[in-house]
Amino acid sequence: MALNTPQITPTKKITVRAIGEELPRGDYQRCPQCDMLFSLPEINSHQSAYCPRCQAKIRDGRDWSLTRLAAMAFTMLLLMPFAWGEPLLHIWLLGIRIDANVMQGIWQMTKQGDAITGSMVFFCVIGAPLILVTSIAYLWFGNRLGMNLRPVLLMLERLKEWVMLDIYLVGIGVASIKVQDYAHIQAGVGLFSFVALVILTTVTLSHLNVEELWERFYPQRPATRRDEKLRVCLGCHFTGYPDQRGRCPRCHIPLRLRRRHSLQKCWAALLASIVLLLPANLLPISIIYLNGGRQEDTILSGIMSLASSNIAVAGIVFIASILVPFTKVIVMFTLLLSIHFKCQQGLRTRILLLRMVTWIGRWSMLDLFVISLTMSLINRDQILAFTMGPAAFYFGAAVILTILAVEWLDSRLLWDAHESGNARFDD
């Protein structure tokens, strides 16, 4: 018995066209964080690309023209004298008006014999932002004059995390709450300039795509075929072959399989920071003279006294001054041990922890910024005066060393310790 099946006739004509040209192939790229070699397709503007294995951002879609970056830099340069030299806060102490600005706080630190601690604050609040705007201006002028731009481009990517104007702005709020127990506070004209400078700096850093600047100024022929001998440069993120001198053909720094002496430098910085954190938390970090009496505060006791007036601000200072430094030390110690013992479990967790400490590390400088600003506000000789204690130097040095330890660690070593050939990683 035959089955009668109805015929289905399409209502619209289906047209099949042959592909007349070869589909576009992607360029081969190595991930600078996990060293995976993959094919990167062509990316349009405002599109980002991520590593298929570790999800690290390979290409950032946010990109401004150099002219727009230069305009932002010149605007920031105009704001800087007002943000640093004009009063941020006014207080009335014992019937006398006192003005506080950024430069005055750094000068008070240096004047009291601790120039190293003052230079830490100076670099993060004044030096690094000033280098940022002058570097962008150098790129703008240098591109037109045919100057060598490689050193500036190499420095810009590392400079971003040292620009800490946003953290200093939080420190202004913390210092205001600490001082309000002794005097009446009012915002100064410099505060508005400083807030504007923070906003412009944040926007500029978020749109400063150094890798795209490398592509514009020093374009290189990408690798179009897969080759395990391809290496990625950690300076400019170019994937290719080393030249005859073993250097990256684009930025001219040595092109090595792994960062040289990464573990040794990381261990040295980490152990030194552990040693410095002990006096930083045991010795007094601030000293207040009130009517001839002397009151010393460690980091913890200062947080407890701050909690009596504002528990939320005390929580912020606790996280930045105690929780973050010790968390960074514990995480980095764990990561280094996992590399030495070739741990194969929990790779995803370790990668996330490394990215976390990379982002939060700079916030530990908050305590030094609060001390710097408070020193310029309260300084009335023996009637009422505020000065920093010996722990300030140890704390600042420990924070900087932990930042350097994270920067010096080559994250690809975590993958080397893991089993080879993993296309995915999980716990």
Rank of each mutant, 00 (worst) to 15 (best):
K229W: 07
F192W: 12
A307N: 12
W415Y: 13
A115R: 02
E157G: 08
T387E: 03
N281S: 10
C34S: 01
M375W: 03
A196C: 15
F369A: 02
G190R: 05
P129D: 05
S39E: 10
F341I: 13
P219F: 06
W363R: 05
N4A: 08
A196I: 15
S193M: 02
C248A: 00
A269Q: 02
I339A: 05
Q264C: 01
I339H: 07
E86P: 05
S411W: 08
C233N: 00
L165P: 12
P279K: 04
K57S: 08
L404Q: 15
S39H: 13
D297V: 04
A137Q: 07
R350N: 12
N143M: 14
V331P: 06
G246R: 05
E86Q: 14
Y241V: 06
F326V: 12
R259A: 09
A272G: 04
G346C: 11
V102D: 01
E86C: 06
S364N: 00
M164D: 08
M1A: 00
L165T: 12
L234P: 07
L306Q: 00
T5G: 12
F123Y: 06
I8V: 13
Q180Y: 07
F194Y: 11
G235W: 02
I285Y: 00
A115M: 01
V370S: 01
P219G: 13
P129W: 03
I8L: 12
R150W: 01
K229Y: 07
S65P: 05
R62I: 06
S308A: 09
Q345M: 15
I185A: 05
L230N: 08
A2V: 07
L159N: 05
Q108Y: 11
S411H: 08
L208S: 15
Y138F: 10
L352R: 13
A312K: 12
C31V: 00
G20L: 12
V357E: 09
R245H: 12
N209A: 06
R97S: 11
N209W: 13
F393T: 04
L191P: 03
S193A: 14
F82C: 07
V275P: 03
N310T: 09
V121Y: 08
L401K: 08
Q186D: 08
R158I: 13
I199R: 01
L414H: 06
F369C: 03
L354V: 13
Q382H: 13
R247V: 05
T224Q: 09
Y168I: 06
P41A: 11
L37A: 11
G118C: 07
P32L: 14
Q47I: 15
Q186R: 14
L159H: 03
S193G: 14
R412I: 00
H418A: 04
D99L: 06
E21T: 09
D410K: 00
P284E: 04
L300G: 05
L154I: 08
S193R: 03
G26T: 10
P242F: 06
D114K: 14
I116R: 06
M356L: 15
H90L: 07
